[in-house]
Design a protein around this nucleic acid. Structure first.
Lengths: 135, 135
DNA sequence: GCTTGTTAGTTACAAAATCAACTAATATTT
DNA sequence: AAATATTAGTTGATTTTGTAACTAACAAGC
């Protein structure tokens, strides 16, 4: 009996290990920082809270990643007048450039994996992972 | 475009978050320790090196997890005469008991996830994850 | 309006992971 | 067989994460 969380974890690790080197070497980013950058690049402007909810990352991780990205001028914060506790996070030009650069690399890794699977396997896999992630 | 490593990671995180509480509360174990215990329980006696290769964990993580498990008398080490650098790790009775206890809990979590998927989805998912993990 | 409670986000401190340097045993080269 | 390289595993220093306590803004109850 090989448990699903075990298999998921092994597959997740294996599939991301090479990519890690990319954001680390090219931009000196941590995984948390790449994930925040990705969320903003992919889903558009968001508050830290929203990123927490979507990514399931802890708020302290997000807070630190946001600070790091801000320091490197990859994003800006804009206090909301409606609720002055939260701030909208927005990628700068260079943040967007980094996102595009990295996501195109990610995509090619992704395609390398997808190429090993059948059409049906690809489709089922993505559906099921989404389902599990939302459980 | 939602990348596979991203989806895998979200699903892995979501599926293991509840179980973490179990090995932590019941045995005061870390994730690394549970993983080593699991490997020995499931695959039988192994050296630290073999566990590193199979689990893709870093050797310092494994080394420290093994020490912790040894201290708690969950495993013993046996120097190999053939190659006196490495030692075979073997679960003790209480190590085996902990493995059985935890893996039965893991199994029930697992079944809860599986119940949300169709027969076909379950089968494809496991096959594909194995394929990706070994790529 | 003033407690009381909740939420967004940060910070300090403790726990754990990573990295580099190390020992000891074995393998390889010359 | 002596010198060099490699491998298994450990240890210490640094970095990153997790936990808990905090500030500041808002919301609800009274």
């Amino acid at each position: 009996m090989l448990f699903l969380p075990y298999l998921l974890n092994q597959a997740a690790e294996e599939s991301s290990i090479n990519f890690k080197q990319q954001y680390k070497d090219r931009y000196g980013m941590l995984r948390t920082e790449w994930r925040v950058l990705f969320h903003l690049g992919y889903f558009g402007d968001k508050t830290a809270r929203e990123i927490c909810d979507m990514s399931k990352m802890h708020k302290t991780k997000v807070s630190r990643a946001v600070s790091a990205l801000e320091t490197r001028r990859f994003l800006t914060r804009e206090r909301q007048e409606a609720d002055r506790r939260s701030e909208i996070l927005r990628l700068t030009k260079s943040g967007q450039a980094a996102y595009k650069d990295l996501s195109s690399i990610a995509e090619s890794y992704d395609q390398k994996i997808s190429a090993e699977l059948t059409e049906q396997e690809n489709q089922v896999l993505r559906e099921v992972l989404l389902k599990i992630a939302k459980l």
